[in-house]
Design a binder for these strands. Sequence first.
DNA 1: GCACAATAACTACCCATGTAGTTAATTTTA
DNA 2: TAAAATTAACTACATGGGTAGTTATTGTGC
Lengths: 124, 124
Amino acid sequence: MKTPAISESEWKVMQLLWKKAPQPAYDIIEQLSKTEAWHPNTIKTLLSRLQKKKAVGATRYKNLFLYEPLVAQNDCVRAETNTFLERVFGGSIKPLLVHFVENENLSDAEIDELKRILQKKGKR
Amino acid sequence: MKTPAISESEWKVMQLLWKKAPQPAYDIIEQLSKTEAWHPNTIKTLLSRLQKKKAVGATRYKNLFLYEPLVAQNDCVRAETNTFLERVFGGSIKPLLVHFVENENLSDAEIDELKRILQKKGKR
DNA sequence: GCACAATAACTACCCATGTAGTTAATTTTA
DNA sequence: TAAAATTAACTACATGGGTAGTTATTGTGC
């Protein structure tokens, strides 16, 4: 699926909507104000912009709007990942995985889990 | 190491400089014009901006400049990776790796290689 | 030494994004 | 029902980035 470009700040909004939807603006504002020092209007702006680019939809409910994502998280993740992969690792996955496994600290548990996943994957 | 923010297009320039440095502007222009439909001035602008933010240095050589990276590729990769990780996977590595292994197509060879890497890693 | 070609430097312009103020509409409440 | 509170809508403004035009400078071939 084609996904619109979602900016840094907008991602934070989307994450909340993917976790739970539909939600009114003030819920989003409340949640975000825990982690971000954003003015409520800022968040409204983000919502409008997301709405404009068809990433979220809004339906009127009494005097307020309920927002919900119109794009799937998975699609956005994939899109974002591709861009990232392209620009930083020239598009190929292996160097990325190698980088991660080698340079970012993984706990033993994570390593084990990964091994398991790979095991399953390799079997087919 | 602290690295400056490097934009999409700027990355393409950096990649070339990391591959070989120092290089004069026209070499970069020539190489990039193979893959990008950019006006030479555009590339000069990118170089200036990179220079301004101290990502590349330039030393005069006769009537031209030789450019070279001032930031290590590894540091930039790490920085970019962290941003990406943060925004898309909420900062934790495992979901990312899982996503990759599950959703992006890995060849058998890649899977094997990964297993090997993990094996080594797990040993310590 | 001068015209020309190459290079550098400066300027420009539009769009996206981060951020928020101002105004209008609507609901609730005294 | 008029004022206060809430919410929505619109407007604003600075910065960064993509993209390139214009002008100045400098080395080079004649």
